[in-house]
Design a protein around this nucleic acid. Structure first.
Lengths: 203, 203, 203, 203
DNA sequence: AGATAATCGAGACGGTACGTCCGGTCTTGCC
DNA sequence: GGCAAGACCGGACGTACCGTCTCGATTATCT
């Protein structure tokens, strides 16, 4: 797997242009032809690159895909982002989840994300990398927002924030992955409300 | 896809022994060699069957896998099963989720289930079939148990049971699919408690 | 292999219509799709017949083809034919060879005849049958004409008529089978003249 | 099709060892299993080569077979051979034809040669190649011998040498291909005598 | 500045699997 | 019993990719 930044220059004479072309080609191809028909050969051809250049730097198709997402997640600005914090936890969460719903429904990201999830589910090494580099940072942001609410007394004191994150985002991801029912803004709202209040009657 | 029951026998002169051998071979193979190396050719060889016999009756590798699960889910006894209902909802749910955790951690089911999920996420037609034939009935059982609790006043009156089911089982499935953190009985308990009580402080 | 005539009725309950349909289908198909793509399955489909009906009565594809030719050669009238005998041997032979050239060049017979030759060259049993039933009678006619000329003193007394027949018809067939050079009436004439006179200078 | 010589090496990075292994395997296999059971798959397996390597360089099974013969015909020494010329045309021809008979009867060449003839008869492109590269040179040798005799006054002045060649070798090949009668030295002698003298009574 | 060496595009190679076609056998139900 | 229909096991087809392996032709430091 690559080591993100370039200036540290850990000494390789690697061609940066080829690297970017490969990642871009991989991302485009998977969304065009779908996961099942994504091939290293196809990526190399699209990127105008020899196959060996891919095999030299990545151990698997999934790793390429992973790096493509990594590149995507780093490019925007460089500034660290954070979840909105207006003080109204429920509203903030609903906003974030609605955005997530929109992204999952976006045809540009749908196939690539499914592909990445597929690779992760079948490759523990990739899963670890994913947990560390992509899901981890995002989870920290989510937990940060929840921690802020917890400190404000809006969440239970003894709440396990990891479980809380799973409870809010898990249902959504699951519905999407299994294509089980529509992924609508209304559903996102329902999940937030139900998660915050719990299943039991209040009072 | 098959039409399960045999006596109606309205149409085909299909070889039932071959059908069973194929489904069994598919299930065994996917757990032995993994999803990535599961091949129609391999299934046919293991089942002692011509490839054409598979292509004749199933449209895709995923469809075979799906039918293999279907066969598994129908075989046990024939009696309709139900979730435990001791009156203590929390205990019952914990018991069920712990069982689920165990099943997901069982190497006999791990790979096959990941494979099925992969096929579903990439094939809407299969997803619909899954929702109707495998997930649907199971979801009804879950909702049945919750409904019983709801009638007993243990759950909020206006609770959307589908959302509730997602909230309880979604986090588990997600953790498993993405290999994000350990899938332990303790985690199952946490999820049940947190889902029932909600994230907010009670009182 | 079948036993041509029907009334002797050696007791089978064979369906004559199917037999004719099969032979006709075989002949048509080989001329339409070529020898390489001629299949039993295709013949059965075209003839509206079950595959088993073919396998029941013929031992090989070549045998079907052979019978198709046999049917063709028997159908015309029933009267035994003979080669022309005007007294002018050279003219008669040229006429016959020109007709042969025409037949070999006829797209209706070209492919089927090549197919039959192919089967014969690779199947001694079929070759024997061919010699007995198709080539034999024709060779007798040819030898008959030559014998008549021989008796008239137009051919050498000690001439081996089989060799003579080979010498006249062999070059033609060979050129055709190997596609070696054009198969023209002029070539036919040349062959006749050269065969009659021999390669040596006369006188 | 190949371009024989290696030093020019203008274009491809072709593996010469694989090429030879394929041709050798093809030749051996056709004589072992027969034309009908000769398969590209079998050739590849025997040659220890991927199927694609065959499909990459040859358009058809027949082309492989053809090249196998080509390799055979080029390998012996490199020196141009010629037909014997003792001055006694009849004896020379008989010797050559007897050798041909022996070769056609040799089980090592029988099947391969039948296979090649079959491919040629069904593939005009291959036939042209055969005429140019295999039959052509051999025919020139034959015509060379005849021309020498012609100049010595042993053959008719106006004799068409192509027809003459057909007349001498055609009957033999035909008998062999159609398995029509035995292919004996005596037959070879008969053909030579009859061809030289012609069918008509001399004087 | 020239030598040295790793990377690059290209693509041949031995393989595996694809999805299709057909060979020859067997079974079912009609006639 | 023959027959049309067609499922079945098996084997080969010709294609697509896999991951490895040369081949020159750039680079890109390191003498």
């Amino acid at each position: 797997m690559t080591t993100q930044r370039k200036p540290p220059s850990n000494a390789t004479r690697r061609n940066e242009a080829s690297r970017r072309a490969i990642l871009a080609a991989a991302f485009e191809l998977v969304q065009e032809v779908g996961y099942a028909k994504l091939s290293i050969e196809g990526i190399a051809a699209r990127a105008g690159v020899g196959k060996q250049t891919i095999y030299r730097w990545w151990p698997s198709k999934g790793a390429v895909l992973f790096d493509a997402f990594l590149m995507l997640s780093e490019q925007p600005d460089g500034g660290e982002s954070a979840l909105p914090d207006t003080g109204d936890l429920e509203a903030d969460l609903k906003a974030v989840l609605r955005a997530t719903v929109e992204e999952l429904n976006d045809p540009r990201y749908d196939e690539p994300m499914r592909a990445l999830n597929t690779e992760i589910t079948h490759d523990p090494a990739l899963a670890a990398l994913y947990a560390e580099r992509l899901d981890g940072p995002m989870r920290e942001l989510k937990k940060g927002r929840l921690r802020s609410a917890q400190r404000a007394g809006q969440l239970a004191e003894d709440l396990d924030l990891d479980v809380a994150v799973d409870m809010i985002w898990g249902p959504l991801l699951n519905r999407w992955l299994q294509r089980a029912g529509g992924l609508t803004p209304g559903y996102a709202d329902s999940v937030v409300e139900t998660a915050l209040n719990g299943l039991r009657p209040r009072r």
